[in-house]
Structure formats: C-alpha cells, structure tokens
Amino acid sequence: MPSYAIIGGSRGLGLEFVRQLALDGDNIVLVTVRNKQRSPHLDDTVNQLPHNNVHILEADVVDHQAIKAAATEAGNITGSSLDVLIYNAARLEYDNLLRGLLDYDSEDQLDEEFMQSLKVNVLGSIHTVNAFLPLLRRGTAKKIIIVGTEGGERDFVRRARLSDMAAYGITKAAEHMVATKYAVALENEGFTVVSVSPGFVDVSDTKSELMSETNASKMNEIARRTFAAFPTQALLTTQVAVQRILADIRNIGPAESGAFRPSPELA
C-alpha cells in the first residue's frame, strides 16, 4: 500500500492533501498536527472520508524529539517504510507574516520573528527529513516534497515588489536550499527531493485566526502587486492546487531532484 506523510495537515493545503490522498483506499495517510484536540477541520474531514486510512500523529516541528517520536509511530503503522514525505508546515501568523524588514517595532522583535520562522520553515524541515529518512529509505517511491513558494525566489520578489513578508520569504528561500542539499546528498540512493509551489491559493475557509482590517488591507495590496506583475496567475482553490501538486509528485523522478517547481502560471 502506498504510504504518505503530510507534515502540517490541520488546515489549508495540508488538510486538502489528506483529503485527496485518503480518497484512495489503497493509500496509508499519516498526518502530523501540533495538537490533536485543536484540529477541528481535520476531524471533520476524516469523519467524512469513505475509508479508515488516515492516522493522526501529534508533533510540533520545532520539537525534534516530538518529530522523532512521530516517525517511530509512523513506522509502526506502515511496517517501517514510507513512500512520500510532504513537508507542508510553515509559520503563517498574520501579524508577523506580513511585515517587511522595516516594519518591526524593535530589532529584538525582528530577531524573535526571524528565529521563530527559521525554526519552523528551515530547521523543522531538516529535523523532519532526518527523522523520516530511515522509513523513506525502505519505501519504494523515495520522494521528499517541500511545499515552497515563489515568495522565496528572487526574481518573483523583484517583479512583484514584494518587500513585505520578509521573515517568511527569506526563510522559505533557505528552505528551498534545504531541498537542494538533500537532493545532492541522496542522489545515489534514487531519491527525488524537490520544493514545489502551490501558486496563489485561497485557504480562508480553514484559517485559524481572523484577519484584522489592517492586515486584510496589506494582504490585498500584496495580491494587487502580485497579479499586476504576473497577470497570468490565478487565485486557486486548495482542491485545484493540491490536485496539480499530486499529479506532479506522481510524474517526477530523480532527474528533477533538487529543483524548485513553480506554479504552472509562473513557470
């Protein structure tokens, strides 16, 4: 049975990965959340699925011991193997997400936000791959997928004049390099390691916090600049974005390893 682990699946894209993968009864779907008791969207989705093939694991990606424990639990479920790892966790709290480098009230506040973003977006992905790698080595697909963003790519940032979202964009750029480093390190073992962009996706139906008027205004301005710079880009539903990524995951192989795969409208 093909096995998938989605790291960060309580809402948004991660939740849609769980839903779509679990619709195939032959799949084993593992999903991590920070708190099982505070994942209502995931609970509702799992309860509506036709198969009993989703396994929820509790682990915060900033806690590498918890991630190791989740990997051990995953191995007990799958028989000590894993085919595809999808790292979807990201730091996305609006008050911090939308700040540019000149928007912090103090240098200490800037340091704190960058360190927290680094722990989730960069170190979290590293600790997660390291923890699940023994299972992936015994899998058949040997695929590691990092959910990235054009916001971590220099050409996109320049064209969209995206000075906002500094901690997010800078640490996601570093996360893209994480994928490339693992691609090189694992190339002789037949692995495929890529970072992929879902595009510009509407995840408002499962958001975890209300957006203030100020933040909504900032987000609208970011969207305006982005669509002005890239008029072929469209606002996608989570269903469409995940369908495209899963199709890509099925088709890619070691020849594509190490690459950043942009959304089709921006390729």
Rank of each mutant, 00 (worst) to 15 (best):
L162S: 13
V120E: 00
V242Y: 09
T180D: 09
L49K: 01
N220G: 14
L57F: 08
R244G: 09
P40H: 06
I252Y: 01
T232F: 08
H176A: 11
Q116K: 09
E16Q: 06
N47G: 08
D95V: 15
I146M: 11
N251L: 10
L110R: 14
I144V: 15
I77F: 13
A179P: 03
L23K: 06
V122Y: 03
A70D: 10
A69D: 15
E73F: 01
V129N: 02
L23F: 04
L136A: 09
V129R: 05
T78K: 07
I56W: 02
S217V: 04
N96Y: 10
N27M: 04
G258D: 11
L21H: 01
A173P: 05
N188D: 13
D108S: 11
S81N: 15
D44P: 05
L21W: 00
H51E: 01
G75A: 05
V196R: 03
V120G: 04
G190Y: 11
T72M: 07
G14N: 07
D44F: 00
D26M: 03
T128K: 10
F230N: 12
R154E: 10
A5N: 03
N76Y: 05
L92N: 08
N215R: 03
K36D: 01
N52C: 04
G79T: 09
E150A: 08
R91L: 13
G152N: 04
E213G: 09
D108Q: 13
K36C: 00
A228K: 15
H41C: 00
I144C: 05
Q65H: 15
V196D: 06
P50E: 04
E73P: 02
A74I: 08
I222S: 02
E187R: 15
M1D: 01
L49V: 04
N220S: 13
R158E: 14
S195H: 12
D83W: 09
V147L: 15
L97G: 01
V203S: 02
D155K: 13
A167D: 03
Q109I: 03
F227K: 04
I56P: 03
Y104N: 12
D60E: 13
L236W: 11
P40M: 06
N27A: 02
E113Y: 01
E107Y: 12
V62F: 01
S195T: 10
A185T: 08
Y104S: 05
P198R: 01
A59P: 06
T72Q: 15
V129M: 12
E175A: 15
D105T: 11
G152K: 04
I67S: 14
E16A: 01
I170C: 12
P254C: 13
N35P: 03
E265F: 08
D44Q: 08
K142Q: 07
Y4L: 07
V18E: 02
A183K: 10
H41S: 03
Y182I: 05
I77L: 10
S80W: 06
I126F: 07
Q233Y: 02
L266G: 02
S212H: 12
A241H: 04
V184T: 06
R137W: 02
F156Y: 14
Y104L: 13
A74S: 13
V157H: 01
A255S: 14
N53E: 02
